[in-house]
Computed example of a mutant assay.
Amino acid sequence: MKHTYNISGMTCNGCRTSVENKLSEIDGITSVSVNLEKAEAEVVMKEHISLKTLQNALPPKYSISEKRETNIFSSSENVMQTHEQSKFQQLKPLFLIFLYIFIASVLLNFKTWNGSAFMLDFMGLFYIVFSFFKMLDLKGFPESFRMYDPLAKVFPPYAVVYPFIETALGLMFLMRFQIEIALIATIIILGITTIGVTQTLLSKKKIKCACLGTALNLPMTEATFIENSIMLFMAILMLLKLYFL
Rank of each mutant, 00 (worst) to 15 (best):
L125C: 09
F126I: 14
F126L: 15
I128M: 14
I128T: 10
I128P: 01
V129N: 02
V129Q: 04
F130P: 02
S131R: 03
S131N: 08
S131C: 13
F132H: 09
F133L: 01
F133N: 03
K134H: 04
M135V: 08
M135I: 11
D137I: 02
L138K: 13
L138R: 14
P142Q: 12
E143Q: 15
E143K: 14
E143H: 07
S144H: 00
S144M: 10
S144V: 14
F145Q: 09
R146K: 15
R146W: 02
M147D: 09
M147V: 06
P150Q: 10
L151V: 13
A152V: 06
K153F: 11
V154S: 08
V154H: 08
F155A: 03
P156L: 04
Y158W: 12
A159F: 05
A159M: 03
V160P: 01
V160L: 10
V160S: 02
V160T: 15
V160M: 07
V161D: 00
V161C: 02
V161Y: 07
Y162F: 15
P163T: 06
F164K: 01
I165C: 05
I165V: 12
A168C: 12
L169Q: 06
G170H: 00
G170Q: 12
G170F: 09
L171F: 15
M172A: 13
M172I: 04
M172F: 15
L174W: 04
L174P: 12
F177I: 04
Q178V: 10
Q178M: 14
I179P: 13
I179Q: 14
E180P: 11
E180A: 13
E180V: 15
I181Y: 12
I181Q: 00
L183E: 10
L183Y: 11
I184K: 01
A185F: 13
A185I: 14
A185K: 08
T186Q: 04
I187D: 02
I187Q: 04
I188H: 09
I188M: 12
L190F: 14
G191N: 12
G191V: 12
G191R: 06
T193D: 06
T194H: 02
T194F: 11
I195F: 12
I195C: 00
I195H: 00
G196F: 02
V197Y: 09
T198C: 03
Q199F: 09
L201N: 01
L201W: 07
L202F: 11
S203R: 11
S203Y: 00
K205H: 14
K205D: 10
C209P: 13
C209T: 05
C209D: 14
C211Y: 03
L212C: 02
L212F: 13
G213S: 03
G213H: 00
T214M: 05
A215N: 07
A215I: 05
A215F: 10
L216V: 13
L218G: 06
L218D: 05
L218H: 09
L218M: 11
M220F: 05
M220Y: 08
M220W: 03
T221I: 05
T221S: 14
A223T: 13
A223P: 01
T224Y: 04
F225I: 00
I226Q: 08
E227I: 08
S229E: 03
I230F: 11
I230Q: 05
I230V: 14
I230D: 09
M231H: 02
M231I: 15
